[in-house]
Simulated scan of single mutants.
Amino acid sequence: MPRLVRAIARRWPAVLGLAFAAFNLATDDPHSITGALLVLATTAYVVIAALVRPRWSWPVLGILVVVVVTARLVSSGPVVELAAMSAIVVGAIAVGAVRGTFSLPGPYRWQPFAAVGSMALGLGALRLSPEAGRVPIAAGLIGHGVWDLVHWRRHEVVSRSLSEWCGALDLTLGLGVLLLTL
């Protein structure tokens, strides 16, 4: 038994990611397609990349969660939430461009493109019916899960624990949303 406990303790980010994905799938509103987690993950990655501060991964994610929750409290739909995240993404891309961050080799150079692509999926899904909008959101989550794996393996841009948590969350949630859609 202690061996199992140690194994779970070592993989705490993945365990938390799986648990959070299961919670979201179990409590999800089938008529909602905000793609909040896709947009949140993308925003966190590009902000952390622009700052070149992997150690700030969890604090940045925490601040962005506060922004999302605040946007939800002051708004009745996803527009304010997505507008806030879009503004943060644009700001992070500008900061990263000025600092030369996105000319660094490896995953740093792809952060702005990944951010814009994920934001486009999230915003584009709003133009579709809830059922149809879930497909691009699921594809974006699965794609971001693969992106997380790249960051985890290379140990670049974000902390390894965040990429592990995010990968478990994104892949599980993306596959779950896709299965619920079919």
Score class of each variant (00 low, 15 high):
Val89Phe: 09
Arg99Tyr: 11
Leu141Tyr: 00
Trp147Asp: 00
Phe113Cys: 14
Val68Thr: 01
Asp148Gln: 05
Ser76His: 15
Ala26Met: 11
Ala19Thr: 14
Pro136Ala: 05
Gly167Ser: 05
Pro130Arg: 08
Ala49Asp: 02
Phe102Tyr: 08
Ala138Arg: 01
Ser161Gly: 12
Tyr45Phe: 15
Ala50His: 08
Trp165Asn: 01
Trp56Gln: 03
Phe20Met: 09
Leu179Pro: 01
Val15His: 01
Arg3His: 13
Val46Leu: 12
Ala168Asn: 05
Ile93Cys: 14
Val157Tyr: 05
Val98Trp: 12
Arg127Asn: 06
Ala83Gln: 05
Ala9Glu: 15
Val68Gln: 04
Ala14Trp: 03
Ser129Asp: 10
Thr181Pro: 01
Leu178Val: 03
Ala138Gly: 04
Val158Gly: 04
Ala120Ser: 12
Gly91Lys: 07
Leu61Asn: 08
Glu131Tyr: 10
Val158His: 01
Ile88Glu: 09
Val47Arg: 08
Ile142Thr: 09
Leu104Tyr: 12
Val95Phe: 14
Asn24Phe: 05
Pro78Gly: 14
Pro130Glu: 08
Glu81Thr: 15
Gly140Thr: 02
Val65Ile: 15
Val65Lys: 00
Trp110Lys: 14
Ser86His: 08
Ser57Gln: 00
Ser57Glu: 04
Pro30Val: 12
Phe20Ser: 06
Ala71Tyr: 10
Leu180Cys: 08
Val146Phe: 04
Val66Gly: 07
Thr42Glu: 01
Arg160Leu: 08
Leu104Lys: 12
Ala120His: 12
Ile33Met: 06
Val52Ile: 06
Leu38His: 13
Leu180Pro: 03
Ala26Leu: 13
Gly124His: 06
Ala114Phe: 15
Leu123Tyr: 10
Arg154Met: 13
Ser32Arg: 10
Asn24His: 05
Trp110Asn: 12
Ala14Asp: 00
Gly35Pro: 08
Leu51Cys: 09
Ala120Gln: 06
Pro105Thr: 08
Arg160Cys: 08
Leu82Asn: 03
Ala49Gln: 02
Arg160Val: 10
Val89Met: 15
Leu51Met: 14
Ile48Asn: 11
Leu38Asp: 02
Gly174Cys: 03
Asp28His: 15
Val150Phe: 01
Arg99Gly: 05
Leu16His: 00
Gly77Leu: 13
Arg99Phe: 10
Pro105Leu: 07
Arg53Glu: 13
Leu61Ala: 13
Arg134Ala: 13
Pro54His: 06
Val146Asn: 00
Gly176Glu: 03
Asp148Ile: 03
Ala139Phe: 09
Trp56Val: 05
Val90Glu: 02
Ser118Lys: 03
Leu180Glu: 10
Val52Pro: 00
Ile137Tyr: 02
Val158Cys: 02
Trp12Thr: 06
Glu164Phe: 02
Ala9Leu: 10
Val47Leu: 15
Gly143Ser: 05
Leu149Trp: 00
Arg3Met: 11
Pro59Thr: 04
Pro136Gln: 04
Ala9Ile: 00
Trp147Gly: 02
Ala19Val: 14
Gly176Met: 03
Ser75Gly: 15
Val5Asp: 11
Cys166Ile: 09
Leu4Asn: 14
Ile63Ala: 14
Pro54Cys: 09
Pro112Glu: 07
Pro59Ala: 08
Pro130Asp: 01
Ser118Cys: 12
Ala138His: 04
Pro54Ser: 13
Ser103Gly: 07
Leu149Val: 09
Val5Ser: 14
His31Lys: 10
His144Arg: 05
Arg11Pro: 04
Phe113His: 14
Ala125Cys: 10
Ile137Ala: 07
Ala19Asn: 05
Ser163Gln: 04
Arg154Gln: 15
